[in-house]
């Protein structure tokens, strides 16, 4: 029997992997991929809760799935803008390593 807690645990593990990637990796493209992992972990929780809360008409709660739809849309836009910024950055500095980009560091 698979419980709601199993899905939430998997979601928490996925979020932590993405979080650890953002903290540990130094390549901007990998950091952007790890951000995607974190967004998807949130999506998994939302869909699990949507399936858990069965409505009176016998269907899942689709409000949560609409949120997932919005999250996926915003994430796609975010990736497009983020990668364009990375390309512009690479053109200016020839690096995607965050430790080489310390201009704003205090």
């Amino acid at each position: 029997m698979v419980t709601l807690g199993d899905y939430l645990t998997v979601s928490a593990l996925l979020f932590t992997i993405g979080f650890a990637g953002v903290m540990l990796r130094r390549n901007i493209i990998i950091i952007l991929m790890c951000l995607e992992l974190m967004l998807n972990a949130a999506n998994l929780s939302l869909v699990a809760f949507s399936r858990f809360q069965v409505q009176p008409n016998g269907a899942s709660n689709y409000d949560a799935q609409v949120f997932v739809f919005f999250i996926i849309t915003v994430a796609a836009a975010e990736v497009a803008v983020g990668l364009a910024i990375i390309v512009a950055l690479f053109r200016a500095r020839q690096t995607t390593h965050v430790e080489d980009l310390a201009t704003l560091k205090f």
């Binding site: 419980t3 709601l4 807690g5 939430l8 928490a12 979020f15 903290m23 858990f52 016998g58 269907a59």
Partner: peptide, 27 residues
Amino acid sequence: AVVFLAQVLSIIRRFSPAQQAFPPLTG
């Protein structure tokens, strides 16, 4: 990251609906 994971998992363990299986869909 490890502290964060431990915190989330402890919250999930204390969240009582998390132990229930999914109710069946009738639609």
